[in-house]
């Protein structure tokens, strides 16, 4: 059952990756593109290697990264509605990027790449550290979500202040960035995200039993040999880094982190975190590629596409929650 679904998802991934690679606004023939793919000269080759391939790789990696971050957060907080954008992590990154691009913290003008990345990381990790510090005070699961919402409001207010004082060019660039897009991808971003995602994969695979034990409750997990402190900091660091890197290159991408794990639980009929890691990674990639495909063919911004599909999906999940409440 699971294998069949993975094969279908793998097929979808291949289909959307290839159609993305060999189609676009430039009217190119298959033969032209095929030859250009294997040479590193000429305009066609540049289109494929510098525009389409990094964009597709970034979409795949970002989708997988956000989905895995969502799964880790839902497992750690034992909360089915947790996710990078819900808990304020993406908002933290956005504020970091705004400080750099609008507040002029960066050396030079506009989007200094290193500045953007550092800003996003600093913002995301600040929120994660705050979350780690206050998590013990939250008695109910909804308090955590309200925390995320309030972080969102606060950072939103600060971003508005920065926007009000920003110059037109920087403001426009920031607003466009905020709509989310995989189009600004470059090989640097792809490589960094790939390395972090691979490290996440290694860590999660080694600790997959810890993640499942954690769902039995903190005390029980500790009595089963889980090191609570190292698990907490690993998850906060990893999810913060994944969300921040995606945000730095693609903007505050909505819904993928929250919705993908749920979709995978329904598709695979599995609810343990350990067994869901790979399926979630694959499904996140496929969903991001599909969303990017829709963006390219409809010219609707990424976050609009994701929200139009994501919001009804999450509402539907809430409605059937009485039936499936497990994170």
């Amino acid at each position: 059952m699971g294998q069949k679904i993975s094969m279908i998802l793998g097929g979808l991934w291949l289909f959307f990756f290839c159609t993305g690679l060999f189609s676009g606004p430039a009217a190119l023939t298959w033969a032209e593109q095929w030859t250009a793919l294997w040479s590193n000269q000429g305009v066609v080759s540049t289109i494929l290697w510098d525009l389409r391939l990094p964009r597709l790789c970034m979409a795949s990696l970002s989708g997988g990264a956000l989905a895995v971050a969502g799964l880790l957060m839902q497992t750690y907080f034992k909360n089915p509605l947790a996710g990078p954008s819900v808990l304020g992590v993406t908002s933290g990154s956005t504020l970091g990027v705004a400080l750099v691009s609008l507040g002029g913290v960066a050396v030079g003008t506009g989007f200094g790449l290193a500045g953007t990345v550092l800003g996003a990381l600093a913002g995301a990790w600040s929120v994660m550290v705050l979350l780690g510090a206050v998590i013990g005070w939250f008695q109910s699961r909804s308090a955590l979500l309200i925390f995320g919402l309030m972080v969102g409001y606060l950072t939103g207010a600060l971003v508005t202040v920065l926007q009000a004082g920003a110059e037109a060019g920087a403001l426009q660039a920031f607003v466009v960035w905020g709509m989310g897009s995989f189009a600004y991808a470059d090989w640097t971003g792809v490589s960094i995200l790939a390395v972090v995602l691979a490290a996440t994969g290694v860590w999660s695979t080694r600790h997959r039993h810890d993640l499942d034990m954690w769902m039995l409750g903190a005390l029980t997990a500790r009595s089963m040999g889980v090191n609570e402190r190292s698990l907490t900091w690993a998850i906060l660091t990893i999810t913060g880094a994944l969300a921040a890197l995606v945000t730095a290159w693609c903007g505050p991408v909505a819904f993928l982190g929250l919705a993908t794990p749920h979709l995978v639980r329904i598709l695979y009929r599995q609810h343990g975190a350990g067994k869901l890691l790979l399926p979630v990674l694959l499904t996140g990639s496929v969903l991001a590629l599909m969303a990017d495909w829709a963006v390219r063919f409809t010219a609707v911004p990424l976050n609009a596409v994701l929200s139009m599909v994501g919001a009804p999906v999450v509402l539907w999940l809430l409605l059937r929650r009485s039936e499936s409440s497990a994170p």
Partner: peptide
């Protein structure tokens, strides 16, 4: 003892069973 070593020699049951764990009885 390390947490792992301890887990092999002693185990613990809390008063409330887990209410948000989606893993199966077999997986547990």
């Amino acid at each position: 003892l390390s947490p792992r070593e301890r887990a092999t020699r002693m185990s613990f049951v809390t008063s409330t069973p887990p209410r948000h764990a989606g893993i199966t009885v077999r997986e547990t």
